[in-house]
């Protein structure tokens, strides 16, 4: 019986070690260790042994069982790992295939620029104000120091609804509206983005376009402050190494008035196609709020001063994105829109 047991051990461990699959391993477990397995069958013959031999053979049998079980466990672990590796290998996919298309849309490039401008100025403490697109002649012109028959009305050929109502030609009427609503409160610190309209339609003019107006009225606001505010804006918008240049200009509602150029962000100032070889790009108009405008809006120009500025959003979008044709912005071709 002893020999039988040792034979089972020897044969069992060889067979278990040679097992090639988990299934085969299971078969061997049943064959050797199962309820009707070889080990059990041998032990059934224990009764024929002498009483003194029984414990010795019993112990041997237990040892053999333990050793076979260990062997089985080790092989099982090995085969499990092997099977996993095999499975993983079979599960290879082509990771270079494109992912499932997840749809995301696009904001219009003008919206993106408007949001950027708003973000910069709200960061500087400006409040975003609105005004109507259909405006009274009074706010669009008269309250801005542009009386009837003023030659400056020629600069902005307008769409009229009635003699007194028109499509606003600039966002500047929001200045007057906000000041009249706020007087005598200080400071008045707003930007006003929006649509404006002029009777012009060609390659470089659209009858509707967008502007952003800015206004700061307070005690002791100076022309130097205007320069500082615009420099800060320009550097946030176009890059921290930009310079600005102010040139005298004329707007009826500011005095002194200035046209503002930014150093060319394409060539850095050497001169190129974008800046027409001047190194400078004109981007906005500005100036100190005209005393007449302050007066008409209920502020005493001897006590408060202010600056105002206005910029064309289309122009900035075209410069920033390198768009060479204004009309693309209003054609809304989805192949264009998808690029932003």
């Amino acid at each position: 019986m002893r020999e039988e047991l040792l034979k089972i051990q020897e044969q069992g461990s060889v067979e278990l070690n040679n097992a090639q699959s988990l299934e085969e391993l299971n078969q061997l477990r049943i064959k050797y260790l199962g309820k009707k397995g070889l080990l059990t069958q041998v032990l059934r013959g224990m009764g024929s042994l002498e009483a003194s031999e029984r414990p010795i053979v019993g112990q041997l049998a237990n040892e053999i069982r333990d050793s076979l079980e260990q062997c089985l466990a080790a092989k099982n672990k090995y085969l499990q790992e092997k099977a996993l590796l095999l499975r993983l290998e079979e599960e290879v996919i082509d990771v270079t295939l494109p992912g499932r298309p997840i749809k995301f849309g696009n904001k219009h490039p003008l919206t993106l620029i408007l949001e950027e401008i708003k973000g910069i100025f709200t960061g500087m403490g400006f409040t975003v104000a609105d005004g109507p697109e259909v405006e009274l002649d009074y706010y669009n012109f008269e309250a801005l120091n542009i009386p009837k028959d003023h030659p400056a009305r020629d600069m902005q050929d307008s769409f009229y609804i009635t003699d007194e109502i028109l499509l606003r030609t600039h966002t500047s009427p929001v200045q007057a509206r906000v000041m009249q609503a706020m007087t005598p409160e200080l400071p008045v610190k707003i930007i006003a983005p929006g649509k404006v309209f002029r009777r012009d339609d060609d390659a470089t003019h659209s009858p509707m376009f967008h502007q952003v107006e800015g206004l700061l009225v307070d005690n002791k606001i100076t022309f130097a402050d205007l320069k500082g505010t615009l420099l800060s804006f320009v550097r946030q918008m176009f890059g921290s190494d930009r310079q600005i240049r102010l040139r005298p200009s004329y707007f009826p509602f500011t005095e002194p008035s200035a046209e503002v150029d930014v150093s060319c962000f394409n060539c850095g100032g050497q001169g190129c196609r974008v800046c027409k070889d001047t190194g400078w790009i004109e981007i906005l108009g500005s100036g100190m709020v005209h005393p007449n405008v302050l007066q008409m809006s209920g502020y005493n120009p001897e006590q408060v001063t202010g600056f105002a500025f206005g910029m064309g959003v289309e122009r900035i979008a075209m410069l920033k994105y390198g768009i060479d044709d204004l009309r693309l912005l209003f054609e809304n071709d989805v192949r264009f829109l998808s690029q932003f």
């Binding site: 100025f121 409040t127 606001i221």
Partner: peptide, 11 residues
């Protein structure tokens, strides 16, 4: 070139 010494404002 200076920045406005204006009252703090909340946008």
């Amino acid at each position: 070139t200076t920045l406005p010494q204006s009252t703090m404002t909340q946008s």
